[in-house]
Design a binder for these strands. Structure first.
Lengths: 153, 153
DNA sequence: AGTGAAATTAACTTCGG
DNA sequence: CCGAAGTTAATTTCACT
C-alpha cells in the first residue's frame, strides 16, 4: 500500500482545482522546490492516483443543460441480464454516469441532453430499447445547487 | 449568441479527454496550424465555454470510495428555508453534488466519504443538523458502472 | 527526500502577412 | 488562418545537504 503525506494531499487539492498552474506556483504554495514538486507529481501519475487532466466545459454554453436522473429496475437479476444491461448503458453517450445502487431500484443514471425533446427521444429510442428493463422513474433537475469535480481530501 | 463550428466541438471533445496534450498534437488531429489551435482555445476560454483545467484523481487510491445518493425532503418550501438549506449544503465538503429535482423528494445529493462509518458521522453530525429537513432516503452505490467527466458533444 | 543551479527540450505566445 | 521568431515553462541532470 502506497501512502501519501500531507504535502501529497495538498498537491492533489491544488491540482484538482487548477491543473494548469506552473510547478513554480505550486512550489511556492507548498514551500518546496520546483524539482520536488515535479517529482511528486510524476510519482502520483505513475501510481495512478492522478488519473489524467481534463478541461471542464460549461454545459449551459453548449446547450447540454437538461439533466435527468433515471431510476431503473430490471425484470430479472441474473448475471446474464445484469452484464448485458450494463454493457448497453455504457454505450449511451447521453448517460454520463451509471450506478448500481441499493434500494427500491437497481440503477441510477445521470443523463444529460439538450432539452426535454431530446430527452423524450433518448427514452423512447434508446433507453427503453434495452431489454429486461422492468420500470423507470425519471427525476428532472430543476436547479444545480452544487457541482464539485474535486474529491474532498 | 456565440456559435461553435465543428472544429470547436472537436477541439472541446479532445480537451475534455486530455487537456495536457500539446497544441501541436491537437493541430495534427484537427488539420490546423498550432497558432489556429491556440487562438481557438483562447477564444473558448474567454467566452467561458472552457471553465478551467483540472486533474482527475482516483477515488479508490485515496480512500474516498464510498458513494451515497441522498434524497432529501424539506418540511417547508418557503423561499427562506430553501435558500438556507442550499447555502448550508454547499458548505459540506462530503457533498460533491446537489440538485433540486422534481418528484417525491426535493433534493438529490451525491455524497462521497471513506466508508460506512464516515457516512454515519456525516449523517448524524452534519446533514441532519441542518434545519427544516423533513426526511431523507439514502441509496448506497454498490458499483460504479460508468462515470464520464466529459459532456457528450 | 529535498535543494539550487545549469542545460536542454518543448511548449506557449506574439506578430507580420 | 499561416509560419517564423521570441518568450516562457517544463524537464532532466547533477553535486550537495
Amino acid at each position: 500500500m502506497v501512502t501519501f503525506d500531507d504535502t501529497d494531499i495538498k498537491l492533489l487539492k491544488f491540482l484538482q482545482e487548477d491543473s494548469k498552474q506552473t510547478n513554480k506556483a505550486l512550489s511556492l504554495k507548498l514551500g518546496l522546490s520546483v524539482t520536488a514538486v515535479f517529482e511528486r507529481i510524476k510519482k502520483l501519475e505513475r501510481e495512478g492516483v492522478i488519473d489524467g487532466y481534463v478541461a471542464k466545459v460549461n454545459k449551459l454554453r453548449l446547450e447540454r443543460n437538461f439533466m435527468v436522473f433515471c431510476h431503473i429496475k430490471l425484470v430479472q437479476h441474473s448475471q446474464d441480464f445484469v452484464v448485458r444491461f450494463e454493457k448497453e448503458v455504457k454505450q449511451l453517450n447521453e448517460v454520463l454516469e451509471c450506478y448500481h445502487i441499493s434500494g427500491d431500484y437497481d440503477y441510477l443514471l445521470k443523463v444529460i441532453v439538450k432539452d426535454m425533446e431530446a430527452f423524450r427521444e433518448f427514452m423512447v429510442k434508446k433507453l427503453t430499447k434495452i431489454n429486461h428493463i422492468g420500470s423507470t422513474h425519471s427525476m428532472f433537475v430543476i436547479n444545480e445547487v452544487k457541482h464539485e469535480t474535486a474529491i474532498n481530501l
